[in-house]
Computed example of a mutant assay.
Amino acid sequence: MGLDLTVVPPFAGLILQGALWTIAITASAGVLSFFGGIGFAICALYAPAIIRYPIKAFAWLFMTTPLLLQLFLIYFGLVQIGIDIPAFFAGMIGLGLHFAVYNSDIIQTGILAIDKGQHEAGRTLGLSRGQTLRKIVIPQAVRDVVPPIGNNMIALLKDSALVSVIGVVELVHASQLAISETFRPFEFYLAAAACYYVVNLLLEFTLHRIERRIALTR
């Protein structure tokens, strides 16, 4: 039998399409996880108890259950109560919320590390509490926690393979479709691994560029 990479080129279009869907779901879920993390962090630290405690319970739920189970609940479970979400958006929401709660913990740490004098300075300038957070505290906190958030984005890219179980034709699912026709799993999983490696390099390059630009503003 041996290794025969010549079976891969005829399915290059399918693999490329899967890679593009992987990038799309990673990017959209990454944006959701970033801004969702900021929102959760602010609510956990400053919202009234009636909002703060449900948010903390929600975060605890997402941190203590597997991502795969969360995807099943969003895609298959919500249909039973009349909420039918397309597979791509179910995957985006599941990935985004899962990593948002982890980003929230990181951002909360960043906010608490900001000197209280920054809050007082904002109030002295006539800014409201919300304006002080939005214009002074949050930008500094996010700047300081970019590296760990970047690590979460890389983890999100790798975990995006899980959305294949709900029918999203991303890289792994595209490889499985090719395997079902050729019965050559090693070649196509190897091709998928190579694609993940390239996408991961691009993501790391982008994150390093962002970190360098932020470092110049310090």
Rank of each mutant, 00 (worst) to 15 (best):
I74S: 06
I74L: 10
Y75T: 10
Y75W: 03
Y75I: 11
Y75V: 09
Y75A: 10
Y75Q: 09
F76E: 03
F76G: 05
G77M: 08
L78F: 03
L78R: 12
V79H: 11
V79Q: 14
Q80F: 03
I81K: 10
I81Y: 03
G82E: 08
G82S: 12
I83K: 12
D84R: 15
I85E: 01
A87S: 13
A87L: 03
F88N: 08
F88S: 05
F89I: 14
F89W: 15
F89N: 08
F89M: 15
A90I: 08
A90V: 11
G91T: 03
G91L: 02
M92P: 00
G94S: 09
L95E: 08
L95Q: 07
G96M: 07
G96L: 05
G96H: 12
L97D: 00
L97P: 01
H98I: 01
H98F: 14
H98D: 08
F99W: 13
V101H: 05
Y102G: 06
Y102F: 15
N103E: 14
S104P: 02
D105N: 07
D105G: 13
D105L: 07
I106C: 04
I106S: 04
I106D: 03
I106L: 10
Q108N: 06
Q108A: 07
T109M: 05
T109C: 05
T109S: 15
T109G: 14
G110H: 00
G110L: 00
I111A: 04
I111F: 04
L112S: 12
L112H: 08
I114M: 09
D115C: 01
D115S: 14
D115P: 02
